[in-house]
Amino acid sequence: MILTELKKGEKATILNLSGTTELVQQRLLDLGITEGEEVCYKCALPFGGPCMLEVCGQCIGLRRREAKEIQVVRT
């Protein structure tokens, strides 16, 4: 499944990041976000706005379009 299919507050493990663009991937790596890490989908802003995630004890904001490229599995 993909990250944005999670419900608000649900947790999942990241399976694959390679669908996102290289720049996004590098930034995610910088923030310590890689395959195998647990992610919590916290909320999304209206009209296709960005979503808020919690990974490795930190909160980040990411465009929904990028988030849709991240594959996860529910934990």
Partner: peptide, 11 residues
């Protein structure tokens, strides 16, 4: 250019 948006949300 492909637009990118990732932002850290500090406590």
């Amino acid at each position: 250019e492909h637009s990118v948006f990732i932002v850290e949300l500090p406590p």
